Simulated scan of single mutants.
Amino acid sequence: MSGSAAEFYVGDIPGGDEPPPDFTVATDAEIRAGLASWTSEFRVVHASFV
């Protein structure tokens, strides 16, 4: 693998500090609702560019 540039972002997802759903008893819908996804709000707190 090679490249000429890279970007790395660190961020905060509101509600992301809450514990994840209990995968042993939660329904699929409850699990999806309790985890971050591509459509989750994301606040960049640090970025690196190479």
Rank of each mutant, 00 (worst) to 15 (best):
S2P: 12
G3Q: 12
A5C: 06
A5T: 12
A6E: 07
A6D: 03
A6F: 07
E7W: 07
E7Y: 08
E7R: 15
E7A: 10
F8V: 12
F8D: 02
F8L: 14
Y9K: 12
Y9C: 08
Y9R: 12
V10F: 00
V10C: 05
V10S: 05
G11W: 05
G11K: 11
G11T: 07
D12Y: 13
D12C: 02
I13H: 09
P14A: 11
P14M: 08
G15N: 12
G15A: 11
G16R: 10
G16F: 00
G16P: 03
D17M: 09
D17L: 11
E18W: 00
P19R: 00
P20S: 04
D22N: 14
F23L: 12
F23D: 01
F23H: 02
F23K: 05
V25L: 05
V25T: 15
V25N: 09
A26D: 01
A26M: 07
T27G: 10
T27E: 08
T27F: 02
T27M: 05
D28I: 04
D28Q: 14
D28S: 09
A29N: 11
E30Y: 03
E30K: 07
E30D: 09
I31Q: 02
I31V: 15
R32C: 10
R32W: 00
R32F: 02
A33M: 05
A33Q: 04
A33E: 06
G34I: 03
G34E: 03
L35T: 15
S37N: 13
W38L: 09
W38T: 14
W38A: 14
T39N: 12
T39C: 10
T39R: 03
T39A: 08
S40L: 07
S40K: 05
E41C: 02
E41Y: 01
E41F: 00
E41S: 12
F42N: 14
R43H: 13
R43Y: 09
V44R: 08
V45H: 04
V45Y: 02
V45R: 14
V45S: 10
H46V: 11
H46F: 00
H46S: 14
S48Y: 12
S48M: 13
S48N: 06
F49A: 09
F49G: 02
F49K: 15
V50S: 14
V50M: 01
V50A: 12
